[in-house]
Computed example of a mutant assay.
Amino acid sequence: MAVACALAALLAGCQTVGAGSPSGPDLDTRLHDADVMSEVNGNVVAKAAYWGGLYEQDPRDAEAAAEYASALRAVGSTAAAIDVLRRAESLNPDDPRILAEYGKTLTSSGRAAEALPVFDKALAVDPDNWRTLSAQGVALDQVGQHDAARAVYRAAIAAAPGEPTPWNNLGMSYALTNDLKDAELAMRKAVSTPRATGKMRQNLALVLGLRGDYTDAERLASAPTAPAAISGDAEKLRAIVTQPALWAREANADNNPVIIE
């Protein structure tokens, strides 16, 4: 596949992988190096090269297809990710990893309405997967079904009480409808967990700023772990709160406050 070849070229020169193509020790070494780079450095290009190589070797490998598509989505190659997932779903029609990633990719490309039945299929097979539940909630929020989204986030919280992502997404769902008190309560739950990220603390700062609590918002924004450009994100959040249709456009942007995981 051309995308896999281009990604592999960033590592050590591309050879097309597939039937009748060179493999052996050289390919194994490149894949191993890419795997190490992706884990140590959080390098999504290396991750895409690694999983792309495995996927090219065996398109029936559901794990490789899902991970490859996830990496392609992370580097912005959404159309390529969808192509991989369509093929993977035809080969593994009931695999929850494929279905969940397919739903996330459709959601991140602004096609939430198409994602919802895909999430339903994934959850029919793996009903307690908090990541799939949380991602389904994002899709529901995108199409304006906020009450349904919040119910799904709470199901994700029940399935994984220590995970901050569903709390974060619940808080941002409330922010979408300008229910800022409930948004703050949910966001504080998110940031109180050990696995909370700087992005989540930024999201809480944005909500606090919208509520007029600039002192606490500034404290969070100036913390060592806080990402930059709080003011710009605050303007974006204000726009999202007043124009929920912007959610779809910003679904997978770098500064988007909602986390799809």
Rank of each mutant, 00 (worst) to 15 (best):
S222P: 00
E163N: 14
A139K: 04
R150Q: 12
N178H: 09
G198V: 08
T197L: 11
S173W: 09
P194E: 03
K181P: 01
V152W: 02
A149G: 06
N203L: 06
P161G: 05
K181R: 11
L180R: 07
G198A: 09
K189C: 07
L170R: 02
N203R: 08
A135H: 00
E250S: 07
I157H: 04
S134F: 01
M172F: 14
I240R: 11
L140M: 11
T215F: 06
L180Q: 06
A229R: 13
A183D: 04
D128K: 12
L220P: 08
G137P: 03
I240N: 00
P166D: 01
Y153M: 05
R201D: 01
K199A: 14
A156G: 15
E250T: 08
A248F: 09
A228S: 14
A226G: 03
R201T: 06
L176N: 02
A248W: 03
A239L: 14
A228L: 11
E184G: 09
A248N: 09
A239Y: 05
E218C: 00
K199G: 03
R150V: 03
A151K: 11
S192I: 14
A155S: 13
A158M: 04
W130N: 00
G171V: 02
D182H: 08
L133C: 06
Y174V: 02
L210A: 13
G162F: 10
N169D: 02
R154T: 07
V143R: 01
R211D: 04
G162N: 07
M172Y: 13
L210Q: 12
D147S: 15
Q136T: 01
T177S: 13
R131Y: 06
S222N: 12
A160R: 13
G137C: 11
A190Q: 01
N168C: 11
D233Q: 10
A160S: 15
L210S: 05
A175K: 05
A160N: 11
Y214V: 13
P164N: 04
S231L: 13
Y174D: 09
G209N: 11
L220V: 05
P194S: 08
G144L: 11
D141H: 09
S134G: 11
Y153I: 00
L204P: 06
D233C: 10
L204R: 07
D216M: 15
Q142I: 08
A228E: 14
A135C: 07
L210W: 08
A245V: 13
S231T: 13
E235A: 15
R211G: 09
E184I: 11
G162D: 08
N169R: 07
A155T: 10
R219S: 11
D233P: 01
L185S: 13
E184L: 08
L206G: 02
A175C: 02
A156Q: 03
L185M: 12
A156R: 07
V241L: 00
N129A: 10
R154D: 05
P224R: 12
A175F: 04
H146L: 15
N129G: 01
W167K: 09
R211W: 01
W167L: 12
P224T: 13
T132R: 02
A190L: 04
A139R: 02
